[in-house]
Amino acid sequence: MTTVSAERLAKIFVEVADTLVDEFDLVEFLQMLADHAAGLVDASAVGILLADQNGRLQFMAASDESAKLLELFQIQNQEGPCLDAFNTATPVINADLRTAGARWPLFGPRAAASGFLSVHAFPLRLRNELIGAMNVFGTSVTAVLDAADVQVVQALADVAAIGLLQERAISRGEILTEQLQAALNSRIIIEQAKGAIAQAQGVTVDVAFTVIRAYARSTNSRLVDVAQLIVTDLASIPALAQPTEPV
């Protein structure tokens, strides 16, 4: 069955194209892709990982907290569909989490316990280089991807990879490395900012992320720029720098 709506797909690709020509923020871009990709398949969640210079996958974006935790769980335990997709450069399609205990003894039960029933993973490729992987989690048994769906989601994964090349006309491998390193560091800045806001406002780090994103949107700023300012000069953003509640 085809679960991807053509209308929805068209909207996504327009927004993707719009992001690529606009002031570019890779982390925000990947976040947007994760959010949108999650809407492609009924009631699903999406997580995106990128490889660092040592080929180790690092968390970049997820459509929700449960997907994020499952991505981190895979990294921590070095086991799961994202790692398989990355290591084999082949998509993992329609894996049934209720019977995945043999394939992923740790990840399978954990993902099932999070309420997911199916999982798919797509390698992120740029030219001939593998740069990461994208996970798609389904909560419904009917959320099965058919061949056409797989192509669409892989296309979206390919777009995510292309997003890494700010200067898309330039084919130098150096640019890719520079961009990838910048993206990995941006993710770290965002985590540091989440901690700072969590402390300053007495909220959880996840609420802090929502606060930071909302502020970035309301001020039409790039997520990473807001995060950067939070970490380097929080006092300059009175709206975010509320008095610290001792916890």
Partner: peptide, 27 residues
């Protein structure tokens, strides 16, 4: 090895941000 030197866990970076605010210091 680098694993013990520069940890890459999200939680550590969040902790850095929290302690920065606790201390009123730089990151």
């Amino acid at each position: 090895g680098l694993d013990g030197a520069v940890e890459r866990r999200a939680e550590l970076f969040q902790a850095q941000g929290m302690v920065m605010v606790q201390l009123g210091s730089t990151i």
